[in-house]
Amino acid sequence: MRMGYGRVVCLSAAMVLVMQFACGSVEADSANGRRIAERWCAECHVVAPGQRHASDAVPTFAQISGSGRFDEATLSAFLANPHHSRMPNLSLTRSEIADLVAYIRRQTH
């Protein structure tokens, strides 16, 4: 069965996007993720050991990382579209999301 040129282009573009998303965590910069977390997330979440002020109504980054409920893909999807939660939409780029996810995944109890 022959595919039209438009379908081939769309399929190729989709494959490139999937590969970039799947490989993004390899290139993620957790140090930048920490900077993003300290700037945007620390008002509500405990984002690092030793942090003194945060809300006790939301999980810490260590709890999120250790919960087993969020793998890299789930965290990335959630951060890309947090409209269904109490979190604000931070309008992070894909690379910022990858960096933040890499930082969150490094946190432990």
Rank of each mutant, 00 (worst) to 15 (best):
L79H: 02
A62E: 03
I97D: 00
I36C: 04
V26D: 14
I36P: 02
V46H: 07
S65K: 04
A80G: 08
D71C: 04
T60V: 07
W40M: 01
A62V: 06
V46G: 12
L75S: 02
A57G: 07
T60P: 06
A42Q: 03
A62H: 03
A31G: 10
T93G: 04
Q63M: 08
M87W: 02
A77C: 06
C23S: 11
D71N: 11
A37P: 02
A54G: 11
V58R: 02
L79G: 03
N89F: 09
S30V: 02
V46A: 11
R52C: 09
G68N: 02
I64E: 06
R34H: 14
Q20T: 12
A73H: 10
I36N: 00
N32H: 15
A28Y: 13
D71Y: 09
F61A: 01
R69A: 11
E27K: 15
S91W: 13
F78R: 12
C44I: 07
L92R: 05
G33I: 05
V26N: 15
S67T: 06
H83P: 05
G33Y: 12
R52K: 15
A57W: 06
R34K: 15
A98S: 14
T60L: 07
G66A: 10
L79T: 01
A57I: 09
V47M: 04
C23G: 14
N81A: 04
R39L: 02
E27W: 15
R86K: 01
Q63F: 13
R39H: 05
S30F: 08
N81W: 09
E43T: 14
A42E: 04
A22F: 08
I64H: 11
R35S: 10
L75P: 05
C23H: 13
A57E: 08
P82S: 03
D71F: 08
F78T: 11
P88Y: 12
V58F: 15
I64A: 12
V46W: 05
Q51C: 10
C44N: 08
I97S: 03
F21A: 09
C41T: 00
R94A: 13
F78L: 15
L92Q: 09
R34Y: 15
H53D: 12
R52M: 15
E72G: 15
H45F: 10
H84L: 10
L90F: 11
E96G: 07
V26F: 14
D71M: 02
E43D: 12
P49E: 07
A80M: 11
C44G: 09
P49W: 04
L75N: 01
A48G: 02
E96D: 14
S85A: 00
P88C: 12
P49V: 04
C44T: 05
H83I: 07
F70L: 06
D29V: 00
A31W: 11
V58N: 03
A80S: 12
Q20P: 09
S30Q: 01
D56W: 06
N89Q: 07
S55V: 04
G24D: 08
N81G: 03
A42I: 07
R52N: 09
N89G: 09
G68F: 10
S30E: 07
G50M: 00
A42H: 06
W40E: 00
H45R: 01
